[in-house]
Design a protein around this nucleic acid. Sequence first.
DNA 1: TGCATGCATCGATAACTGTCGATACATTGA
DNA 2: TCAATGTATCGACAGTTATCGATGCATGCA
Lengths: 110, 110
Amino acid sequence: MKEIAVLGECCPQLLAAPLDEDDAELLATGFKALADPVRLRLLSLIANAPDLTACSCDLEEPVGKSQPTVSHHLSVLADAGLITKEKVGRWVNCTLVPERMAGLREALAV
Amino acid sequence: MKEIAVLGECCPQLLAAPLDEDDAELLATGFKALADPVRLRLLSLIANAPDLTACSCDLEEPVGKSQPTVSHHLSVLADAGLITKEKVGRWVNCTLVPERMAGLREALAV
DNA sequence: TGCATGCATCGATAACTGTCGATACATTGA
DNA sequence: TCAATGTATCGACAGTTATCGATGCATGCA
């Protein structure tokens, strides 16, 4: 199993050369995290927050989902490397990882 | 329901502004199509074929899936606007739609 | 006309996923 | 130490999805 970090680094394998099975799996993991409207809105909220960072507690109301559901989606985003979560006191700060976004973005270059 | 074509056009709503529910749904539909390793490999094969076009019959063996499964995935890609399918004689030619790829790509710009 | 072939559809099944209420955990403040 | 609060986890349920064998449909070829 390749490291997710590989994708975050410079210009991964894109569609300019046939994907092998491992690369496809790796990319699919990333896109799977983007394949849900609630997660896209969460990402959008975080991306538009100061320092690309938002408190988890400020995200439930805008997306209109329950606390466990938002927590679940944030974990999916974190597992996919799209955000990082840092616990500070009672709250959890979520920060966008632009490099990972760029990595997935580059994968779509034709 | 917004038209998929909207996304294919120039520079859609990206993460630079909070996504509304409809935009999120629209983008998620696209990424959902990308969220499977088999489909990514199919896209990759098509993208690397001459004229961005490949015969459906040449795709089953490389991805190692059954004919119905490949047919299903190609339909998903076509429904998402990522490829077009044209029946020519007994075969079906699949062609990549670079504009749609670019549309989803731009959505990830930070 | 009849046969071979490439593709789509159907039916079935197993696996995954989004959602939420209930609950447990941890941290802060009184 | 105790109560309040922000998160994570658990259990459950409904809906979706990936997969394939069997079958049907249409086209080209002999």
